[in-house]
Amino acid sequence: MQRVNMIMAESPGLITICLLGYLLSAECTVFLDHENANKILNRPKRYNSGKLEEFVQGNLERECMEEKCSFEEAREVFENTERTTEFWKQYVDGDQCESNPCLNGGSCKDDINSYECWCPFGFEGKNCELDVTCNIKNGRCEQFCKNSADNKVVCSCTEGYRLAENQKSCEPAVPFPCGRVSVSQTSKLTRAETVFPDVDYVNSTEAETILDNITQSTQSFNDFTRVVGGEDAKPGQFPWQVVLNGKVDAFCGGSIVNEKWIVTAAHCVETGVKITVVAGEHNIEETEHTEQKRNVIRIIPHHNYNAAINKYNHDIALLELDEPLVLNSYVTPICIADKEYTNIFLKFGSGYVSGWGRVFHKGRSALVLQYLRVPLVDRATCLRSTKFTIYNNMFCAGFHEGGRDSCQGDSGGPHVTEVEGTSFLTGIISWGEECAMKGKYGIYTKVSRYVNWIKEKTKLT
Protein backbone atom coordinates (compact mmCIF):
# COMPACT_ATOMS: atom_id res chain seq x y z
CA MET A 1 0.00 0.00 0.00
CA GLN A 2 2.91 2.29 0.80
CA ARG A 3 4.31 1.55 -2.65
CA VAL A 4 1.05 2.46 -4.39
CA ASN A 5 0.85 5.71 -2.55
CA MET A 6 4.36 6.56 -3.61
CA ILE A 7 3.52 5.85 -7.28
CA MET A 8 0.38 8.09 -7.17
CA ALA A 9 2.32 10.85 -5.56
CA GLU A 10 5.13 10.63 -8.04
CA SER A 11 2.97 10.08 -11.23
CA PRO A 12 -0.30 12.12 -11.10
CA GLY A 13 -0.50 12.26 -14.90
CA LEU A 14 -0.66 8.53 -15.06
CA ILE A 15 -3.66 8.48 -12.78
CA THR A 16 -5.51 11.04 -14.94
CA ILE A 17 -4.95 9.01 -18.10
CA CYS A 18 -6.28 5.89 -16.44
CA LEU A 19 -9.45 7.58 -15.24
CA LEU A 20 -10.14 9.11 -18.67
CA GLY A 21 -9.78 5.74 -20.34
CA TYR A 22 -12.25 4.24 -17.92
CA LEU A 23 -14.87 6.92 -18.61
CA LEU A 24 -14.57 6.66 -22.39
CA SER A 25 -15.04 2.92 -22.22
CA ALA A 26 -18.15 3.21 -20.07
CA GLU A 27 -21.72 3.27 -21.73
CA CYS A 28 -23.42 6.70 -21.61
CA THR A 29 -26.95 6.55 -20.17
CA VAL A 30 -27.53 10.31 -19.44
CA PHE A 31 -27.91 11.70 -23.03
CA LEU A 32 -30.30 10.49 -25.76
CA ASP A 33 -29.08 9.73 -29.18
CA HIS A 34 -29.59 12.25 -32.04
CA GLU A 35 -32.73 10.61 -33.50
CA ASN A 36 -34.62 10.35 -30.19
CA ALA A 37 -33.63 13.83 -29.14
CA ASN A 38 -35.29 15.28 -32.27
CA LYS A 39 -38.56 13.50 -31.43
CA ILE A 40 -38.78 15.40 -28.15
CA LEU A 41 -37.78 18.80 -29.58
CA ASN A 42 -39.90 18.55 -32.71
CA ARG A 43 -39.88 22.30 -33.69
CA PRO A 44 -40.19 23.51 -37.31
CA LYS A 45 -37.15 25.10 -38.75
CA ARG A 46 -37.35 28.89 -39.01
CA TYR A 47 -37.00 30.73 -42.31
CA ASN A 48 -33.34 31.55 -41.85
CA SER A 49 -32.43 28.72 -39.55
CA GLY A 50 -28.72 28.25 -39.33
CA LYS A 51 -27.96 31.78 -40.52
CA LEU A 52 -27.26 35.00 -38.70
CA GLU A 53 -30.46 37.16 -38.68
CA GLU A 54 -28.46 40.35 -39.10
CA PHE A 55 -27.54 39.26 -42.63
CA VAL A 56 -31.01 38.25 -43.99
CA GLN A 57 -34.16 40.15 -44.95
CA GLY A 58 -36.69 40.55 -42.12
CA ASN A 59 -39.79 38.36 -41.89
CA LEU A 60 -43.09 39.93 -40.69
CA GLU A 61 -44.25 36.81 -38.86
CA ARG A 62 -40.94 36.31 -37.09
CA GLU A 63 -40.32 39.95 -36.30
CA CYS A 64 -43.78 41.21 -35.26
CA MET A 65 -46.29 38.36 -34.94
CA GLU A 66 -44.43 35.79 -32.82
CA GLU A 67 -43.43 38.58 -30.48
CA LYS A 68 -43.90 42.34 -30.24
CA CYS A 69 -41.53 44.22 -32.47
CA SER A 70 -40.16 47.73 -32.59
CA PHE A 71 -40.54 50.20 -35.43
CA GLU A 72 -36.94 49.48 -36.47
CA GLU A 73 -37.62 45.75 -36.65
CA ALA A 74 -40.71 46.36 -38.77
CA ARG A 75 -38.61 48.65 -40.97
CA GLU A 76 -36.29 45.71 -41.66
CA VAL A 77 -39.26 43.80 -43.13
CA PHE A 78 -40.63 46.53 -45.42
CA GLU A 79 -37.32 48.25 -46.18
CA ASN A 80 -39.41 51.38 -46.82
CA THR A 81 -40.30 54.05 -44.27
CA GLU A 82 -43.66 54.98 -45.83
CA ARG A 83 -44.92 51.37 -45.96
CA THR A 84 -43.61 50.75 -42.47
CA THR A 85 -45.50 53.77 -41.16
CA GLU A 86 -48.77 52.56 -42.70
CA PHE A 87 -48.28 49.13 -41.09
CA TRP A 88 -47.26 50.65 -37.76
CA LYS A 89 -50.46 52.75 -37.46
CA GLN A 90 -52.63 49.63 -37.48
CA TYR A 91 -50.13 47.43 -35.59
CA VAL A 92 -49.97 49.71 -32.56
CA ASP A 93 -53.70 50.35 -31.88
CA GLY A 94 -55.81 48.66 -34.57
CA ASP A 95 -57.53 50.09 -37.65
CA GLN A 96 -59.32 53.36 -36.77
CA CYS A 97 -60.99 53.31 -40.22
CA GLU A 98 -62.77 50.01 -39.60
CA SER A 99 -66.02 51.82 -38.66
CA ASN A 100 -65.99 53.86 -41.91
CA PRO A 101 -66.18 57.26 -40.17
CA CYS A 102 -65.77 59.37 -43.33
CA LEU A 103 -69.03 60.64 -44.84
CA ASN A 104 -70.06 61.74 -48.34
CA GLY A 105 -67.64 59.44 -50.13
CA GLY A 106 -64.58 60.46 -48.10
CA SER A 107 -61.53 58.15 -47.99
CA CYS A 108 -60.22 57.14 -44.56
CA LYS A 109 -56.51 56.95 -43.68
CA ASP A 110 -55.61 55.24 -40.40
CA ASP A 111 -53.33 56.91 -37.85
CA ILE A 112 -52.14 56.15 -34.33
CA ASN A 113 -55.12 56.66 -31.98
CA SER A 114 -56.75 58.67 -34.76
CA TYR A 115 -57.67 58.78 -38.45
CA GLU A 116 -57.77 61.28 -41.29
CA CYS A 117 -60.57 61.71 -43.85
CA TRP A 118 -59.64 62.72 -47.38
CA CYS A 119 -62.78 64.53 -48.52
CA PRO A 120 -64.11 64.77 -52.09
CA PHE A 121 -64.62 68.16 -53.68
CA GLY A 122 -67.36 70.10 -51.95
CA PHE A 123 -66.93 68.67 -48.45
CA GLU A 124 -64.67 69.24 -45.48
CA GLY A 125 -64.55 68.68 -41.72
CA LYS A 126 -63.25 65.86 -39.51
CA ASN A 127 -65.61 63.37 -41.19
CA CYS A 128 -66.30 65.28 -44.46
CA GLU A 129 -69.64 66.29 -42.96
CA LEU A 130 -69.49 69.97 -43.96
CA ASP A 131 -70.71 71.13 -47.37
CA VAL A 132 -68.51 73.83 -48.86
CA THR A 133 -70.17 74.25 -52.24
CA CYS A 134 -73.70 75.06 -53.34
CA ASN A 135 -73.41 72.58 -56.21
CA ILE A 136 -74.07 69.61 -53.92
CA LYS A 137 -77.53 69.41 -52.35
CA ASN A 138 -77.75 73.20 -52.34
CA GLY A 139 -75.01 73.26 -49.69
CA ARG A 140 -77.59 71.74 -47.30
CA CYS A 141 -79.27 75.15 -47.25
CA GLU A 142 -83.04 75.00 -46.86
CA GLN A 143 -83.70 77.83 -49.30
CA PHE A 144 -80.88 79.80 -50.93
CA CYS A 145 -77.16 79.10 -51.14
CA LYS A 146 -74.22 81.26 -52.16
CA ASN A 147 -70.51 80.50 -52.28
CA SER A 148 -68.41 83.10 -50.48
CA ALA A 149 -65.10 84.47 -51.74
CA ASP A 150 -63.23 81.64 -49.97
CA ASN A 151 -65.62 79.08 -51.51
CA LYS A 152 -67.59 78.49 -48.32
CA VAL A 153 -71.35 77.90 -48.26
CA VAL A 154 -73.44 80.85 -47.09
CA CYS A 155 -77.15 80.11 -46.65
CA SER A 156 -79.91 82.71 -46.78
CA CYS A 157 -83.69 82.90 -46.71
CA THR A 158 -86.44 84.68 -48.58
CA GLU A 159 -88.12 87.77 -47.15
CA GLY A 160 -90.03 87.05 -43.95
CA TYR A 161 -87.63 84.33 -42.83
CA ARG A 162 -84.32 84.25 -40.96
CA LEU A 163 -81.58 81.66 -40.62
CA ALA A 164 -81.98 79.26 -37.73
CA GLU A 165 -79.20 78.57 -35.25
CA ASN A 166 -77.74 75.85 -37.47
CA GLN A 167 -77.21 78.46 -40.23
CA LYS A 168 -78.90 76.10 -42.72
CA SER A 169 -82.62 76.08 -41.96
CA CYS A 170 -85.02 78.99 -42.32
CA GLU A 171 -87.53 79.96 -39.65
CA PRO A 172 -90.36 82.51 -39.79
CA ALA A 173 -89.42 86.04 -38.79
CA VAL A 174 -92.97 87.44 -39.17
CA PRO A 175 -96.37 86.12 -38.04
CA PHE A 176 -97.49 85.05 -41.53
CA PRO A 177 -94.47 84.46 -43.76
CA CYS A 178 -94.89 83.82 -47.46
CA GLY A 179 -95.54 80.37 -48.83
CA ARG A 180 -96.45 78.75 -45.51
CA VAL A 181 -99.67 76.93 -44.67
CA SER A 182 -100.52 77.82 -41.07
CA VAL A 183 -104.10 76.58 -40.61
CA SER A 184 -103.76 73.69 -38.18
CA GLN A 185 -106.23 71.29 -39.80
CA THR A 186 -104.59 71.70 -43.21
CA SER A 187 -100.98 71.48 -42.11
CA LYS A 188 -101.27 67.68 -42.25
CA LEU A 189 -102.21 67.99 -45.91
CA THR A 190 -99.05 69.84 -46.85
CA ARG A 191 -97.73 68.38 -50.06
CA ALA A 192 -94.63 66.23 -50.18
CA GLU A 193 -91.51 68.27 -49.52
CA THR A 194 -89.05 68.71 -52.33
CA VAL A 195 -85.42 67.99 -51.50
CA PHE A 196 -82.59 69.64 -53.42
CA PRO A 197 -80.79 67.37 -55.87
CA ASP A 198 -77.19 67.85 -56.94
CA VAL A 199 -77.35 70.86 -59.26
CA ASP A 200 -74.90 72.50 -61.62
CA TYR A 201 -75.51 76.05 -60.41
CA VAL A 202 -73.15 77.55 -62.92
CA ASN A 203 -75.38 76.45 -65.79
CA SER A 204 -78.71 76.44 -63.97
CA THR A 205 -80.19 79.40 -65.80
CA GLU A 206 -81.12 78.27 -69.26
CA ALA A 207 -79.49 80.06 -72.15
CA GLU A 208 -82.77 81.08 -73.69
CA THR A 209 -83.53 84.05 -75.88
CA ILE A 210 -86.82 85.78 -75.25
CA LEU A 211 -88.43 86.35 -78.60
CA ASP A 212 -89.38 89.95 -77.89
CA ASN A 213 -89.16 91.20 -81.45
CA ILE A 214 -91.18 88.50 -83.19
CA THR A 215 -94.23 89.84 -84.95
CA GLN A 216 -96.99 87.37 -85.48
CA SER A 217 -100.61 87.57 -86.50
CA THR A 218 -103.15 86.94 -83.80
CA GLN A 219 -103.79 83.22 -83.46
CA SER A 220 -107.25 81.82 -82.89
CA PHE A 221 -107.11 79.66 -79.77
CA ASN A 222 -109.95 77.52 -78.49
CA ASP A 223 -110.74 77.91 -74.80
CA PHE A 224 -107.32 79.29 -74.04
CA THR A 225 -108.35 81.10 -70.87
CA ARG A 226 -107.59 77.91 -69.09
CA VAL A 227 -108.68 72.31 -62.46
CA VAL A 228 -109.84 69.19 -64.22
CA GLY A 229 -109.33 65.98 -62.26
CA GLY A 230 -108.20 67.87 -59.16
CA GLU A 231 -109.17 67.64 -55.51
CA ASP A 232 -111.07 69.94 -53.18
CA ALA A 233 -108.67 72.11 -51.24
CA LYS A 234 -109.15 72.61 -47.51
CA PRO A 235 -109.73 76.14 -46.18
CA GLY A 236 -106.35 77.86 -45.89
CA GLN A 237 -104.47 75.20 -47.85
CA PHE A 238 -103.55 77.71 -50.60
CA PRO A 239 -103.75 81.03 -48.74
CA TRP A 240 -102.00 82.96 -51.55
CA GLN A 241 -104.78 82.15 -54.04
CA VAL A 242 -107.25 84.91 -54.95
CA VAL A 243 -110.26 85.00 -57.26
CA LEU A 244 -110.99 87.84 -59.70
CA ASN A 245 -114.57 89.04 -60.19
CA GLY A 246 -115.53 91.40 -63.01
CA LYS A 247 -118.23 91.19 -65.64
CA VAL A 248 -118.63 87.64 -64.36
CA ASP A 249 -117.54 86.13 -61.08
CA ALA A 250 -114.47 83.90 -60.84
CA PHE A 251 -113.37 84.68 -64.39
CA CYS A 252 -109.68 84.34 -63.45
CA GLY A 253 -107.37 83.69 -60.54
CA GLY A 254 -104.28 85.33 -59.13
CA SER A 255 -101.65 85.19 -56.37
CA ILE A 256 -100.86 87.52 -53.48
CA VAL A 257 -97.42 89.14 -53.85
CA ASN A 258 -97.83 91.28 -50.73
CA GLU A 259 -100.56 93.22 -48.93
CA LYS A 260 -101.05 95.63 -51.84
CA TRP A 261 -100.28 93.63 -54.98
CA ILE A 262 -101.63 90.66 -56.94
CA VAL A 263 -99.96 88.88 -59.87
CA THR A 264 -102.13 87.34 -62.59
CA ALA A 265 -102.22 86.68 -66.35
CA ALA A 266 -102.27 89.74 -68.61
CA HIS A 267 -104.95 88.25 -70.86
CA CYS A 268 -107.33 88.19 -67.87
CA VAL A 269 -107.59 91.96 -67.51
CA GLU A 270 -109.12 94.62 -69.73
CA THR A 271 -108.64 98.34 -69.49
CA GLY A 272 -111.75 100.05 -68.15
CA VAL A 273 -113.31 96.92 -66.65
CA LYS A 274 -113.79 97.06 -62.89
CA ILE A 275 -112.14 94.15 -61.10
CA THR A 276 -112.68 93.01 -57.53
CA VAL A 277 -110.15 90.75 -55.83
CA VAL A 278 -111.33 88.30 -53.17
CA ALA A 279 -108.64 86.80 -50.91
CA GLY A 280 -109.26 84.10 -48.32
CA GLU A 281 -111.92 82.53 -50.55
CA HIS A 282 -112.73 78.82 -50.43
CA ASN A 283 -116.33 78.17 -51.52
CA ILE A 284 -117.43 80.92 -53.89
CA GLU A 285 -121.10 80.36 -53.09
CA GLU A 286 -120.76 80.56 -49.32
CA THR A 287 -119.69 83.25 -46.89
CA GLU A 288 -117.08 81.68 -44.63
CA HIS A 289 -115.93 84.90 -42.89
CA THR A 290 -112.37 84.42 -44.09
CA GLU A 291 -112.86 86.47 -47.27
CA GLN A 292 -111.35 89.91 -47.87
CA LYS A 293 -112.55 91.95 -50.86
CA ARG A 294 -110.51 94.72 -52.46
CA ASN A 295 -110.93 96.86 -55.55
CA VAL A 296 -108.21 97.08 -58.20
CA ILE A 297 -107.03 100.66 -58.68
CA ARG A 298 -104.19 100.03 -61.14
CA ILE A 299 -103.34 97.39 -63.72
CA ILE A 300 -99.74 96.97 -64.93
CA PRO A 301 -99.33 94.47 -67.78
CA HIS A 302 -95.75 93.55 -68.61
CA HIS A 303 -94.24 96.17 -70.91
CA ASN A 304 -93.65 93.54 -73.64
CA TYR A 305 -97.23 92.29 -73.59
CA ASN A 306 -99.21 93.11 -76.73
CA ALA A 307 -102.53 91.30 -77.11
CA ALA A 308 -102.87 92.56 -80.70
CA ILE A 309 -99.79 90.55 -81.67
CA ASN A 310 -100.11 87.56 -79.35
CA LYS A 311 -102.55 87.24 -76.48
CA TYR A 312 -100.37 84.85 -74.49
CA ASN A 313 -96.79 86.03 -75.00
CA HIS A 314 -95.49 87.74 -71.83
CA ASP A 315 -98.80 86.82 -70.24
CA ILE A 316 -98.33 88.44 -66.85
CA ALA A 317 -99.80 91.51 -65.11
CA LEU A 318 -99.82 93.15 -61.69
CA LEU A 319 -102.90 94.49 -59.89
CA GLU A 320 -102.65 97.20 -57.24
CA LEU A 321 -105.31 97.10 -54.51
CA ASP A 322 -107.11 100.08 -53.01
CA GLU A 323 -106.50 98.90 -49.43
CA PRO A 324 -103.86 96.55 -48.03
CA LEU A 325 -104.90 93.01 -47.25
CA VAL A 326 -104.75 91.90 -43.62
CA LEU A 327 -102.47 88.89 -43.53
CA ASN A 328 -103.60 85.84 -41.59
CA SER A 329 -103.76 82.05 -41.94
CA TYR A 330 -106.20 82.36 -44.86
CA VAL A 331 -104.55 85.33 -46.58
CA THR A 332 -100.80 84.84 -47.04
CA PRO A 333 -98.41 85.92 -49.85
CA ILE A 334 -96.67 83.44 -52.12
CA CYS A 335 -92.87 83.46 -52.00
CA ILE A 336 -90.98 84.77 -55.03
CA ALA A 337 -87.31 83.84 -55.30
CA ASP A 338 -84.71 85.43 -57.57
CA LYS A 339 -84.42 84.46 -61.23
CA GLU A 340 -81.85 81.72 -60.69
CA TYR A 341 -83.66 79.94 -57.89
CA THR A 342 -87.11 80.29 -59.47
CA ASN A 343 -85.70 78.47 -62.48
CA ILE A 344 -84.07 75.83 -60.26
CA PHE A 345 -87.30 75.26 -58.35
CA LEU A 346 -89.22 74.81 -61.61
CA LYS A 347 -86.75 72.10 -62.64
CA PHE A 348 -87.59 70.10 -59.54
CA GLY A 349 -90.14 68.54 -61.86
CA SER A 350 -93.61 69.06 -60.43
CA GLY A 351 -95.74 71.86 -59.09
CA TYR A 352 -99.23 72.58 -57.82
CA VAL A 353 -101.92 74.50 -59.67
CA SER A 354 -105.15 75.72 -58.11
CA GLY A 355 -108.30 77.57 -59.08
CA TRP A 356 -112.08 77.65 -59.43
CA GLY A 357 -112.06 76.91 -63.16
CA ARG A 358 -114.19 74.41 -65.00
CA VAL A 359 -114.02 70.88 -63.64
CA PHE A 360 -114.22 69.47 -67.19
CA HIS A 361 -114.00 70.89 -70.72
CA LYS A 362 -116.95 73.23 -71.36
CA GLY A 363 -118.41 72.06 -68.06
CA ARG A 364 -119.46 73.88 -64.91
CA SER A 365 -117.06 75.90 -62.79
CA ALA A 366 -115.95 74.58 -59.42
CA LEU A 367 -117.55 75.98 -56.29
CA VAL A 368 -114.75 74.86 -53.97
CA LEU A 369 -111.12 75.68 -54.72
CA GLN A 370 -109.50 72.83 -56.65
CA TYR A 371 -105.84 71.84 -56.72
CA LEU A 372 -103.74 69.43 -58.74
CA ARG A 373 -100.13 68.33 -58.84
CA VAL A 374 -98.77 68.49 -62.38
CA PRO A 375 -95.41 67.25 -63.71
CA LEU A 376 -93.13 69.47 -65.77
CA VAL A 377 -92.98 68.44 -69.44
CA ASP A 378 -89.67 68.61 -71.29
CA ARG A 379 -89.49 71.29 -73.94
CA ALA A 380 -89.10 68.94 -76.90
CA THR A 381 -92.27 67.05 -75.97
CA CYS A 382 -94.04 70.33 -75.35
CA LEU A 383 -93.17 71.68 -78.81
CA ARG A 384 -94.30 68.47 -80.53
CA SER A 385 -97.66 68.54 -78.77
CA THR A 386 -99.02 71.66 -80.49
CA LYS A 387 -98.97 73.58 -83.75
CA PHE A 388 -98.91 76.86 -81.84
CA THR A 389 -95.77 78.75 -80.82
CA ILE A 390 -94.30 77.94 -77.42
CA TYR A 391 -92.03 80.85 -76.53
CA ASN A 392 -89.04 80.54 -74.22
CA ASN A 393 -90.95 82.44 -71.55
CA MET A 394 -93.51 79.61 -71.41
CA PHE A 395 -93.39 76.02 -70.17
CA CYS A 396 -95.64 72.96 -70.37
CA ALA A 397 -96.96 70.89 -67.49
CA GLY A 398 -99.53 68.13 -67.27
CA PHE A 399 -100.24 64.51 -68.17
CA HIS A 400 -99.89 62.95 -71.60
CA GLU A 401 -102.84 60.62 -70.97
CA GLY A 402 -105.10 63.59 -70.27
CA GLY A 403 -107.86 63.65 -67.68
CA ARG A 404 -106.17 66.17 -65.39
CA ASP A 405 -105.35 69.77 -66.20
CA SER A 406 -106.04 73.42 -65.49
CA CYS A 407 -109.05 74.77 -67.40
CA GLN A 408 -111.18 77.82 -68.16
CA GLY A 409 -111.41 80.13 -65.18
CA ASP A 410 -108.06 79.01 -63.74
CA SER A 411 -106.06 81.49 -65.85
CA GLY A 412 -103.88 83.84 -63.86
CA GLY A 413 -103.71 81.41 -60.97
CA PRO A 414 -100.48 80.08 -59.49
CA HIS A 415 -98.17 77.25 -60.41
CA VAL A 416 -96.14 76.77 -57.23
CA THR A 417 -93.25 74.54 -56.21
CA GLU A 418 -92.94 73.50 -52.60
CA VAL A 419 -89.39 73.66 -51.24
CA GLU A 420 -88.86 72.12 -47.81
CA GLY A 421 -92.35 73.14 -46.71
CA THR A 422 -92.34 76.63 -48.26
CA SER A 423 -94.08 77.31 -51.60
CA PHE A 424 -92.56 79.51 -54.31
CA LEU A 425 -94.27 80.91 -57.40
CA THR A 426 -92.83 79.24 -60.51
CA GLY A 427 -95.55 79.77 -63.11
CA ILE A 428 -98.85 81.44 -64.00
CA ILE A 429 -101.68 79.48 -65.62
CA SER A 430 -101.95 80.88 -69.15
CA TRP A 431 -103.48 78.75 -71.91
CA GLY A 432 -103.97 75.33 -73.49
CA GLU A 433 -105.88 73.44 -76.16
CA GLU A 434 -109.19 72.38 -74.64
CA CYS A 435 -108.76 70.94 -71.13
CA ALA A 436 -107.25 67.65 -70.01
CA MET A 437 -107.08 66.45 -73.61
CA LYS A 438 -104.84 63.44 -74.32
CA GLY A 439 -101.48 64.48 -75.75
CA LYS A 440 -102.04 68.14 -74.83
CA TYR A 441 -100.60 70.08 -71.93
CA GLY A 442 -101.28 73.21 -69.94
CA ILE A 443 -99.09 76.16 -70.93
CA TYR A 444 -97.73 78.44 -68.20
CA THR A 445 -95.91 81.75 -68.05
CA LYS A 446 -92.38 81.14 -66.77
CA VAL A 447 -92.10 83.38 -63.71
CA SER A 448 -88.29 83.19 -63.58
CA ARG A 449 -88.25 85.58 -66.57
CA TYR A 450 -90.18 88.24 -64.68
CA VAL A 451 -89.14 88.14 -61.02
CA ASN A 452 -87.03 91.30 -61.22
CA TRP A 453 -89.91 93.16 -62.85
CA ILE A 454 -92.37 91.88 -60.23
CA LYS A 455 -90.18 92.91 -57.31
CA GLU A 456 -89.42 96.32 -58.79
CA LYS A 457 -93.09 97.17 -59.38
CA THR A 458 -94.51 95.80 -56.13
CA LYS A 459 -92.22 97.44 -53.59
CA LEU A 460 -94.13 98.60 -50.53
CA THR A 461 -93.47 102.28 -49.74
Rank of each mutant, 00 (worst) to 15 (best):
A9S: 12
S11T: 12
P12A: 15
L14R: 03
L19E: 02
L20E: 02
L23W: 08
L23F: 13
L24I: 07
S25Y: 14
T29H: 12
L32C: 05
D33Y: 04
A37D: 11
A37R: 10
R46S: 14
N48H: 11
S49H: 12
G50D: 15
G50K: 11
K51D: 10
V56F: 06
Q57D: 15
N59A: 11
R62I: 12
M65P: 14
K68V: 12
F71A: 06
E72S: 08
R75L: 08
V77M: 12
F78Q: 15
F78K: 15
N80A: 10
E82G: 13
R83W: 05
E86C: 04
E86T: 15
W88E: 15
Y91R: 08
Y91M: 13
Y91K: 13
V92D: 14
D93Y: 07
D95S: 12
Q96N: 15
S99D: 10
N100Y: 08
P101K: 03
P101D: 01
L103Q: 12
N104L: 00
S107I: 03
I112C: 03
N113T: 11
S114C: 03
W118D: 02
G122M: 04
G122F: 03
E124W: 03
N127T: 06
E129T: 01
T133R: 09
T133C: 03
C134K: 03
D150V: 08
D150T: 12
V153E: 05
C157E: 01
C157L: 01
Y161L: 02
Y161M: 04
Y161C: 01
Y161K: 01
R162F: 09
L163D: 01
A164G: 10
Q167Y: 09
C170H: 01
A173C: 06
V174Y: 05
P175E: 14
P175N: 08
C178E: 01
S182Q: 07
S187K: 09
L189D: 15
A192Y: 12
A192Q: 09
T194N: 09
F196W: 13
D198F: 08
D200G: 13
Y201Q: 13
N203T: 13
T209G: 14
I210R: 09
L211R: 05
N213I: 07
D223H: 11
F224N: 10
E231I: 10
P235D: 04
P235A: 10
G236W: 05
F238H: 04
F238M: 10
Q241Y: 11
G246M: 05
F251H: 12
G253D: 04
G254N: 00
G254Y: 01
I256G: 01
N258R: 02
E259V: 06
K260H: 06
K260M: 06
V263Y: 01
T264E: 01
E270C: 08
V273A: 12
K274M: 07
V278C: 05
G280S: 02
E286L: 11
V296A: 05
I299T: 14
I300Y: 06
H303T: 09
H303F: 08
N304F: 13
Y305L: 02
N306A: 07
N310H: 11
Y312H: 09
D315L: 01
E320Q: 05
E323T: 13
P324I: 03
L325D: 00
N328K: 01
Y330L: 05
P333V: 01
I334W: 00
C335F: 01
C335K: 00
C335E: 00
I336Y: 02
A337D: 01
A337K: 00
A337M: 02
D338L: 03
K339W: 08
I344S: 14
K347Q: 15
K347I: 03
G351F: 01
Y352Q: 03
Y352V: 07
Y352R: 06
V353W: 03
S354P: 05
G357K: 14
G357F: 08
G357E: 12
R358N: 09
R358D: 10
R358H: 14
F360K: 14
F360L: 15
H361K: 13
R364G: 09
L367S: 10
V368I: 14
V368P: 08
L369N: 09
L369Y: 13
Y371E: 05
L376W: 05
D378H: 07
A380Q: 10
T381G: 04
R384K: 13
S385W: 12
S385I: 11
K387S: 07
F388L: 13
N393R: 03
G398C: 02
G402S: 15
G402W: 15
D405I: 14
S411G: 12
G413Q: 07
G413I: 09
H415F: 15
V416R: 02
E418W: 05
V419H: 12
E420F: 12
G421W: 02
G427F: 01
I429L: 12
W431S: 10
E434C: 11
K438W: 09
G439R: 10
G439S: 13
I443K: 03
Y444L: 05
K446V: 02
S448K: 02
N452P: 12
K455H: 12
E456H: 08
K457L: 11
K459C: 11
T461F: 10
